[in-house]
Design a protein around this nucleic acid. Structure first.
Lengths: 219, 219, 219, 219
DNA sequence: CATGAATGAGACTTCATTCAT
DNA sequence: AATGAATGAAGTCTCATTCAT
């Protein structure tokens, strides 16, 4: 705006841009390493090295390794949950086809992104850092569960689905997809398994559960 | 049972008897702590303390913490897989009811036992110790997957089930139950969740998937 | 000496300057302690303490106690051997007087320096770390033996010395002087011995052996 | 003597014999290991194992590892010193030939026996256990030095030897032979050295020094 | 006497965190 | 703001010594 600002800007444009990008770069590096090796087995130097900064710089942005962990978990969630809520809010008419399409797309995108590792991180570390449990339940589990519960409820109300325990059905639908993300970052990273084709499984599983929910009860 | 065993028992001096029980006690303690805190965050002294021995004694039985981990993973698996194979081998006639009964019982018992924690341990540590991947795949994943695959195959051959991808179906059936065990030792250990009733979910999920597999394809 | 070095020195911040001096300080401390107490009986903390740094700093410079040992042995040798080679290379004319002067000076200086302890270190530790054997033989024993062997050979060729086994003569000349260094760091450090006056013995022994080599063979 | 003793004897003749042999077996094992690996780096179990007994038994005979070390050093010395004194006491007539014969025989036998390792042990450990210094000086160094000093004195008195510092001459004579024993248990145990033929060197060195002492002063 | 299971102090080494530059 | 040298608490593992059998 004024000349001094202009000078400051032109003085360090790259530095400023890098400085602003630092937190994201550190979070990316931390996520990758925490997911791969576990929180306790990841050294602070490794995170800094992967983010391209020195060890000291890491501590300029996060006061401790533990705070970095919490930031990682908090960061890689919010946007996606909100996005799912928006997508389901627009559904009108038969709920099953909409769920099929929307869930497949959402989980496939998540599976393919580094954010899929957050599940492993939460599973692994939540008992050592109870604050994480509360945060994760409030910010992720509760909204997502409620979202899907409402969708299934709508399907039952409309007669598309038969009446079963809604909470169980949500879990039947979602737990294997979470498990798939866990697998990607554990056994799946060690050895390929021809029996498990992730994209096919995501679609197939959603179909299977929605079919299981559909009228009439068989067997 | 037989007299020689009885004599051996009463003959066995206390030292000898304790020595024989040590490995099991150490494995129990190690499983509980590794599952709760993670391998890297568990101190060798803690394991020893929980097993009621000194730190040095632990190293009399396992040459390193890592070997202890491997022993834990190898130990809490074999018997249960074999038992499941035996149970399914006896099935004749309609396969769906047998699966319902047998799977429910097997998973409920596993869920309630400390062995359920091994899943968390494998998920968490397999990338740091690649040996574990091979062992686990060969000794647990492969046999169990083959077992269930054969059962579903029989159901399709007899017309009980419609034809879907068998591998996916096995995963749809099993992954949520593994996820349930993971949950028990992570979030579930931090906060009760009234939406998830483990025993109800085990039965409900098995029903849901088997229903989803049943003829005719709905929707 | 030159201006750029002077500038570099005065420019160098304290941290940098200390970092450059660290290896030498650590090697000095390690030599003193390893020679005094033995490698196995010296604790890493002691070395660090004597060098004026913390335990962790030691490991910033040497990755393990064993590598520190190897560095100590490698360090306190090279210069002196090279210096001896240079001194003997200049000899022309009668070899005996030159040897008398040069050997006396060289061994007296060595005896008085901490480097004399390296002999004890090698004697003591070589069987536990076979790498040391190869290094020491190639870098110290072989060059030094060859050097003296050539000198005695010259003396025999010129008729100054009578013909005896050259290797034995080298050993007769050198082994007591090494033994004197060992003594300084073992029994000699515990109790004074009026019978052994180091400087007198160095000169006396060299004379005795060169006299023993001189023409004609007596007795 | 009496019947109970007879019974005891016939009761456990083998055991008694082994029990009496135990201290010697333990000392042999300890000497070999202490010389090879050093005192601090030798584990008590290793000594017991090499002696064919259990770890506990070692402590029945020696109250601590340190006491075992002292016993080892004290044990492998006495007889040989006494024997040397007896041999030199008988000398009459020219002393040089007698010294040549007697010293060669004595050092060759010592070099070939495990007792040669004691020198390394003393050199290595004397600073950690000052008691050893006093014992070794009184029991070994002083008598042996006095013995040889008297012999050289006789040679000078009779005109066989020219007059030099007697203490230095004793050291010139003896230190290389000690050094040879050290070498056998350090570098010599790691790599053969064709330049050093022990038996040839023992004889050659003794000749060289006695020649160096002989009349007239050359050079 | 002899054993060997058990102990726990103490060694080496790592790594989260600090701070002078 | 950024660095990286330095620290020292804490962890894994060893081993001299004890003692119940």
């Amino acid at each position: 705006m004024n000349s001094s600002a202009a000078i400051a800007d032109s003085d360090t444009p790259l530095r400023r841009r890098r400085k602003q990008a630092r937190p994201q770069e550190l979070l990316d590096a931390a996520l990758a390493l925490f997911v791969e090796k576990g929180f306790a087995a990841t050294r602070a130097d490794e995170v800094a090295l992967r983010a391209g900064v020195s060890k000291g710089t890491l501590y300029l942005y996060y006061p401790s390794k533990e705070e970095l962990l919490k930031a990682v978990i908090a960061h890689f969630l919010s946007a996606r949950i909100a996005q799912a809520e928006a997508a389901l809010a627009e559904v009108s008419g038969p709920v099953a086809p909409a769920l099929r399409a929307m869930l497949s797309a959402w989980w496939m995108a998540l599976y393919d992104s580094p954010a899929s590792g957050v599940f492993k991180l939460v599973i692994t570390e939540v008992r050592n850092f109870p604050e994480i449990a509360e945060f994760y339940l409030r910010q992720v589990v509760d909204p997502a569960h409620a979202l899907l519960g409402r969708a299934l409820q709508m399907g039952m109300a409309s007669g598309e689905f038969r009446r079963v325990n809604i909470d169980d059905a949500v879990h039947s639908l979602v737990l294997p997809l979470i498990m798939l993300c866990l697998h990607r970052h554990s056994l799946g990273a060690c050895a390929a398994d021809s029996r498990l084709e992730p994209m096919r499984f995501i679609a197939g599983h959603i179909n299977l559960v929605l079919d299981g929910l559909a009228q009439p009860a068989p067997n």
